[in-house]
Amino acid sequence: MGIDLPLIWAMIIIFGVMMYVIMDGFDLGIGILFPFIKGSSDRDVMMNTVAPVWDGNETWLILGGAGLFGAFPLAYSVVLSALYLPLMFMLFGLIFRGVAFEFRFKATPEKQHIWDKAFIGGSLVATFFQGVALGAFIDGIPVVNRQYAGGGLDWLTPFSLFCGVALIVAYALLGCTWLIMKTEGPLQKAMHDLARPLATALLVVTGIVSLWTPLAHADIAHRWFSTPNLFWFLPVPVLVLVTVWGLFKSVARNAEYAPFILTLLLVFLGYSGLGISLWPNIIPPSISIWDAASPPQSQGFILVGTLFIIPCILMYTFWSYYVFRGKVTAEDGYH
Rank of each mutant, 00 (worst) to 15 (best):
K189I: 09
A195S: 14
P228L: 05
L5K: 03
A199N: 08
N281M: 09
P35E: 07
F72P: 10
P237Q: 06
I180V: 13
W115S: 04
L239E: 00
S81A: 15
W115V: 01
D55Y: 13
F101I: 05
M19Y: 03
V53E: 04
V17H: 00
A100I: 08
T227R: 08
V53R: 09
A258I: 07
D219Q: 13
F36K: 09
G185H: 09
G135D: 11
A136N: 07
E184V: 04
I302R: 02
V99A: 14
S286L: 00
V53G: 08
L87S: 11
W245E: 02
P158I: 04
L124T: 01
M90V: 02
F15A: 15
A75T: 14
T317H: 05
L173E: 10
L33S: 11
F69R: 04
L274F: 12
E58L: 00
H113A: 14
F231V: 11
F301L: 13
G131I: 02
V209I: 15
L187S: 12
L274S: 03
P35R: 11
Q112M: 04
G152L: 11
M315P: 00
L63R: 06
Y148S: 10
M11V: 15
F119N: 11
V238G: 06
V236L: 14
D116M: 08
W212N: 01
P109R: 09
G93E: 10
V45C: 09
I8E: 07
F308K: 06
I95R: 02
M88A: 15
L87E: 07
N254K: 14
I220M: 14
I8N: 00
